[in-house]
């Protein structure tokens, strides 16, 4: 019984140490090394980031990066990691900056805001694109629904939903409303509850795509939307490429980057949805910098600058 009590007390102390660790922050020491965080090589965010800082060698290779970089799997682990490391630097999607608890850096003198992306001054951005199937044999109803879906993405209703999921795009004066154009898509008046449409591709586009399909299913005969987002590379591969007819086939795929020359699908099967911005982030406790230039960002990732104090504030 005594031991049990002792154990309880020990537990209490241990827990308190643990909790103490959460609240006490260390003061930032600029003479320390920068810890560089990166996404893995299949990530579209990584592609957009390294393209944006003119370091395209690093898109598919870890070999050119600074030694001791940390590779993380996903936007979420990137946020958690940089939050844990006051000497860390990483890059995330602008959509998640507000809730991340991290400090977003001003890039080349321009703050990462939606307005600056739309007016073209913030350059660390990437497009969200879609690609549909080119061959629809035996999938006539699916083809019509996807066609209607693509049209829906450019209506006021569609754009509003994209905006609500932090996609960056604006409504223009000539943007139609779905009510105006839905008569062109008679398939949406039928009952489509036995039709499954397969969505997939980039994980970054997932929240936008899910919100769109969820709303559009209501507007188009309650078709079933199945999402399986595995990476930008699969957008072409699973609609028109090598997996277009297997178990992984998609009716419409999304990419969070431009399609490569090797991925150019048939005429008229792909298009632009909206922009997303990538933003460089550091820990809130970081007092060394609030902004960074393109060339400095490259030097940090290539290992030419390894100390926080070597960066110009």
């Amino acid at each position: 019984m005594k031991k049990l009590l002792l154990g309880m007390m020990g537990l209490l102390v241990f827990t308190m140490i643990g909790c103490g660790g959460n609240t006490t922050a260390f003061s930032f020491d600029a003479s320390r090394n920068i810890t560089v965080y990166t996404r893995d090589t299949t990530s579209g965010t990584r592609d957009a980031f390294f393209t944006g800082i003119d370091f395209s060698d690093a898109i598919t290779s870890n070999g050119v990066l600074v030694a001791n970089y940390v590779e993380v799997d996903g936007n979420g682990s990137m946020i958690t990691s940089v939050k844990n490391d006051i000497y860390g630097i990483g890059y995330i999607s602008l959509a998640s900056l507000e809730t991340s608890g991290l400090k977003g850096l001003v890039f080349d003198g321009v703050a990462a805001t939606e307005a600056n992306v739309l007016n073209g001054t913030y350059t660390l951005k990437r497009p969200f694109n879609y690609m549909t199937r080119a061959h629809w044999s035996g999938m006539e109803r699916e083809r019509q629904i996807v066609e209607a879906f693509v049209a829906f993405m450019t209506t006021i209703e569609g754009i509003a939903t994209i905006q609500n999921k932090a996609g960056i795009i604006s409504v223009e004066a000539n943007t139609p409303s779905w009510d105006d154009i839905k008569s062109l898509y008679p398939v949406c008046l039928e009952d489509n509850s036995d039709v499954t449409i397969y969505f997939g591709g980039s994980t970054s586009v997932e929240s936008v795509a899910k919100a769109l399909s969820q709303e559009f299913s209501q507007k188009c005969g309650n078709f079933i939307a199945e999402h399986n987002h595995t990476g930008s590379g699969d957008a072409y591969k699973r609609t028109q490429g090598s997996e277009a007819d297997g178990g992984n086939k998609l009716h419409i795929g999304f990419a969070s980057r431009d399609f490569k020359s090797s991925e150019s699908g048939d005429e008229g099967t792909s298009g632009f949805i909206c922009f997303d911005a990538v933003v460089l982030v550091v820990n809130q406790a970081n007092t060394a910098i609030d902004s960074i230039t393109k060339s400095e960002a490259k030097k940090v990732y290539s290992g030419d600058k390894t100390l926080w104090s070597s960066l110009n504030p």
């Binding site: 001791n68 970089y69 993380v72 799997d73 699969d234 992984n248």
Partner: peptide, 29 residues
């Protein structure tokens, strides 16, 4: 998931066989 090694220092990052298998497993061919 360090890119090179071996990392025998306790405080440095590292990479194991299983973490290598799991990381970035999104493409399927």
């Amino acid at each position: 998931n360090a890119g090179s090694g071996p990392s025998l220092m306790l405080f440095s990052t590292t990479r194991t066989l299983t973490s290598t298998m799991l990381l970035g497993l999104k493409e399927t061919s």
